[in-house]
Every structure is written in structure tokens, then in C-alpha cells.
Amino acid sequence: MGARVRGPKASASDATETVLRLAVLLQAGMSPARAWSHLAASGDTPAARVVASMDDGMPLADAIVQAGAVQPSQRAPGASDETARAWREVAAAWRVATTVGAPLAESLRGLATALRDAQEAADDVRVALAEPAGTARLMGWLPLVAVGLGAALGFDTFAVLLGQPLGLVCLAAGVALIVGAQRWTAALVRRARMEGGIAGLESELLAIALSGGVSVERAIALVRAAGVTADPATEGVLALSRSAGVPAVELLRATSAFARHRARIEGRLRAARLSSRLLLPLGVCTLPAFLFLGVAPMMLSVMSTMPLSL
């Protein structure tokens, strides 16, 4: 049995680097198994996982999928399941290329470019989201700061919130609003993030399959067997290729590149719109929570100390 490989934090960018190195070794004339072994010996952690899985008798394509099956504790912060998805896409390209006999080095170089574009687009969106998301999280704790501020100014804030019926109502309402604001904000940020995976993956894999000399129908069947969903844009490219009588490979690669570019722009637009949308939980939840936990207890405290007039 192969030893379990442990290494540094894994991220989707590891797949890009490994695939690029693998393409260079394959272009130099190495066999796939030997290329993976050399990468593993050089300290490449994903390649070491692939070799360990192959030593256990696992087929190479399945071993590539296994390279992304890392434990959550070994993932880079924010990586989520991007690592596993990236390696599934590498495995799909590997299966298609080896089945049709397409040049592995060229196919992997193209896939590495697609992986790099997808990772850069995700990084752009992550950076754009960092400031508004961080500001929203900071503002979410403002009501709790108001509680401490009221106590620091000499009001019996805690006594009111914990000892009076109206104070308990304010406490329950404020906490509920804080929780609602945090969940609402998290949902908005989650929707603004880019969808994982390579945009235009079907076009990229079809280009790999067709470069091996198979028919369009056979290429489509192989891509479907690899678990890649259909893309309406691909049908139009194939129809254009048939009507114009030109090879579809370059058209498909151009379509894949444009799909990645469009996904990057759409991700940036979603990040830009997030700043204004985050004002909704701030106005609907955070500011009322500030009133319930900060202003209302101070007013109740003042009222409780006022002498009753006859």
C-alpha cells in the first residue's frame, strides 16, 4: 500500500503549476508514468498523491482525481472545493486526450492556461470582495459596541437588558437582528463570488478530442462521458464550423478563451454591485439592532431613575 502523502496547504493554483511542469516533461519525450514520478520526486505534492494512488493500483486518471481529494485541514484558506474541482477537470482532459491519442503536452498546456485564467479571475473577484465584505462584517458588530459604550457612559445598560421586561425584549430583538444581518451579508457575499470551475470547459475538451482526429459525434460523446455538462455556445461553434467548412479546433479554443474572459468581467461586476447591496442588511438589521441594544437601554435606564410625579 502507498503511504499517505501529507504536505503544505493545497490550493487550486497547485494544479496549474503541476500541469505546466508535466507538459514540459511530456514534451521532452517522457512517458506519463515516468513524468509523474519525476514530479513527485522533486517535491511536487499533488504529483506525489498521484504516484501514491497509482502504487495502490489505481488507474492514472482516477489517481489524478484523487490528487484533489485533500482533507479540509490541508486546504489553503478560502480554497473551499476549488482544489478538488480543478483536479477533476485535469482528469477529464487527461481521459479525453489519452482516449483519442491527442498530443498530451499540447493538451495539458492549453488546460493549464485555462486553469490559470480561471484562478486569476477568482482571485480578482476575491480581492474586490475583501473590502466591502470586511466593512460589512465590522459594521455588524456595531450594536454590541453600543452596549459597552452605554455602560462606559454610566448608564445601567446591562441591568436594563437583563433585568427589565422591556430590556429583555430589546436584547432578544437586537441579537436576532445581528444574526440576521450576519447571515444576510454572508449570503450576498457568497452570491457575488465566482462559480467554480473553468468557464468554457466543454469547448476546451472538445478541441482536445478533435485534435486527436475523431469525429465531432465521438468527441461530444467522450466529453459527456467525462462528466462535462453541455454548453449552448458550443453547439453554435460546431454549426459554424460545419457550415463554413473549417476545422472546429481553433474556433472552440477561441470560444473557451472568450468564455473565461466573460466570466472574469461578470465576476468583477458582481463584486462592484456588492457594495451597494450590503447597505440593505446594514439599514434593515444593523441600525435597528443598534437602537435596540444601544439607544433603547439608555432611555430605559434614564426613565427608571426619574422620580415619579404625583
Rank of each mutant, 00 (worst) to 15 (best):
M298D: 00
S275Y: 06
L206H: 10
A259W: 00
S215E: 12
L280R: 09
L240Q: 12
A263G: 06
S215N: 09
S243E: 15
S256R: 05
P247G: 10
S256G: 15
L252S: 01
A254F: 07
R277W: 09
A233T: 13
L308H: 09
P247C: 14
A230Y: 13
R242M: 11
R224Y: 06
L280A: 14
P307V: 08
A219R: 02
S241W: 11
P247E: 11
S215K: 12
G236S: 12
A272M: 12
S276A: 12
G200S: 09
L287T: 04
I198G: 00
A244H: 11
L293E: 02
A271I: 04
G200T: 08
L210I: 07
A230L: 14
T234M: 15
A259I: 02
P281K: 10
I220T: 15
V246C: 06
E202H: 07
S241P: 10
S256Y: 08
L280G: 03
R260D: 05
S301Q: 02
G197N: 11
A257N: 06
A207F: 09
F290H: 05
A248S: 15
V223P: 00
R277E: 12
E204W: 08
V223W: 00
L293M: 04
A219Y: 03
A230W: 13
A219H: 04
S203G: 15
I265S: 06
V237C: 03
D231V: 02
I220S: 11
T234Y: 02
P232L: 12
L205G: 01
L251C: 05
R253A: 03
A296C: 07
G212V: 11
V284Y: 14
R262T: 11
G294A: 03
S304I: 03
V295C: 09
T234L: 11
L293I: 05
A263Y: 01
R218I: 10
L269H: 08
F258H: 09
P288H: 10
I208P: 02
G236P: 04
C285W: 10
G197T: 07
L300T: 00
R270I: 02
L287G: 01
R218M: 10
L282T: 06
A199F: 12
S243M: 08
V284T: 07
V237T: 13
L287D: 03
C285N: 11
S211K: 14
L308Q: 12
S256E: 09
G245Q: 14
L308K: 11
R273A: 07
F292R: 03
E202Y: 07
T286H: 04
P281A: 07
